[in-house]
Amino acid sequence: MPRTTADKPTEITESTPRRRQARGERRISQLLAAAAGVFCRTGYAAASTSAIAREAGVSPGTLYQFFPNKEAIAVELGGQLLQRAHEMHGQAFLPENLQRPLPQLLDAVLDPVIAFNCENPAFWALMHGSGIPGIAQEHEELHAGLITRVEGVLHSFTPEATPAELERTSNMILGIFKSSLDLILAHEGAERAAYIAELKTVLLRYLEPMITTTHPR
């Protein structure tokens, strides 16, 4: 008796697992994007897997196929954002930027850092509000690396400064930046641009008296 189309076994090709993997990766990206939105609106503590599933337009059961709980979602999202932050810091602190006059140096360093935080507001929400040990540790390492970078820039401008002075000034710079970033993220458009300009003015006036080396003007 001839076999009908219905009797034929489903053909499994080499591309089938790849398609399934691609669908899974798209779903994970969808869930992470939804989680980013929920974390920004409600904060990590108040967020729930149900809210994330609703934001993604999927059932909670679908979410649990990929993540066992909210913390696992935050760890995955936080890890991706931390990796992007490391890459962004590398672009902001390029060696050639040290040859710029201070106002242009501030532009070169601050603009990509601010843009990253504005484009990824979940980074701020997770790094400063989740309390997840893994994320907290990685963020501390990122912060320590940033302090080292800032100290290196300061040393090129003020080679006579002691290590303690460099550390104190670097911590002040980051403190000013973090406080200003709250205001920057809370505004949009022209008002955001105005706060960014104010931040640069504050840092310029703080740093200018310390500079003793000659740089191009």
Rank of each mutant, 00 (worst) to 15 (best):
T5C: 00
D7Y: 01
T10A: 14
Q21M: 03
R26L: 11
I28R: 15
S29A: 15
S29C: 05
S29Y: 01
Q30K: 11
A34S: 08
V38P: 00
F39N: 01
C40T: 13
Y44G: 06
A46N: 14
S48V: 05
S50M: 03
A51D: 06
A53G: 12
R54N: 11
E55D: 03
A56Q: 07
P60M: 08
P60K: 09
G61C: 06
L63I: 08
L63E: 05
F66S: 15
A72D: 13
R84A: 11
A85F: 11
H89R: 14
A92V: 00
A92K: 10
E96I: 10
E96W: 03
L98N: 13
Q99I: 06
P101Q: 12
P101R: 14
L106V: 03
A108Y: 10
V109N: 05
F116W: 03
W124E: 12
L126P: 02
L126M: 01
S130F: 02
G134E: 14
E140Y: 05
E140W: 05
L142V: 12
L154V: 11
S156L: 11
A161P: 04
A164Q: 10
A164L: 09
S170F: 09
S170A: 15
M172Q: 07
G175A: 02
K178Q: 02
D182W: 01
E188K: 13
R192T: 09
A194F: 07
Y195K: 11
K200L: 04
V202C: 02
R205H: 10
T214D: 11
